[in-house]
């Protein structure tokens, strides 16, 4: 299974970006192979609107089944839900730590968006 983690850097030691829609990158982690790749998301970083929607499209097309991030707004959440992607919020620290926290069940799966649109 592939997990997409919103990240400010390009490896497992980089920090989790708390913003889903305007994260610079997604680290795509394969739980079976224990490998990762990087999905660039910089074009959505400065989008005037619809950053969350396009980021969700990006994640969905990457084949990820789970998103780990800090917060997720309503439009992004709707897209991720429609794409059958599980949304996990409240992550912080290094990407590798976030993956570990998710595996040990310390992070919660969001039932809805946890912030308003354009919260930051």
């Amino acid at each position: 299974m592939k997990i997409a983690i919103s990240a400010s850097g390009a490896d497992l030691n980089s920090q989790v970006d708390p913003r889903f829609g305007r994260a610079a990158r997604f680290i795509l982690f394969d739980t079976e192979k224990q490998t990762f790749s990087v999905v660039d998301n910089t074009k959505n970083l400065n989008a005037a609107q619809g950053a969350g929607i396009q980021s969700a499209e990006n994640v969905s097309r990457s084949g990820a089944k789970v998103v780990i991030t800090g917060h997720c707004g309503p439009k992004a959440f709707r897209a991720l839900q429609a794409a059958n992607v599980q949304v996990v919020v409240g992550a912080s620290g290094a990407v590798s730590d976030a993956i570990e926290q998710f595996r040990s069940g310390k992070l919660k799966t969001a039932e809805s968006a946890d912030v308003e649109g354009h919260w930051s």
Partner: peptide, 10 residues
């Protein structure tokens, strides 16, 4: 205007 998301599901 990013009003359309083309997701794996449609």
């Amino acid at each position: 205007f990013h009003a359309i998301a083309c997701l794996a599901t449609g």
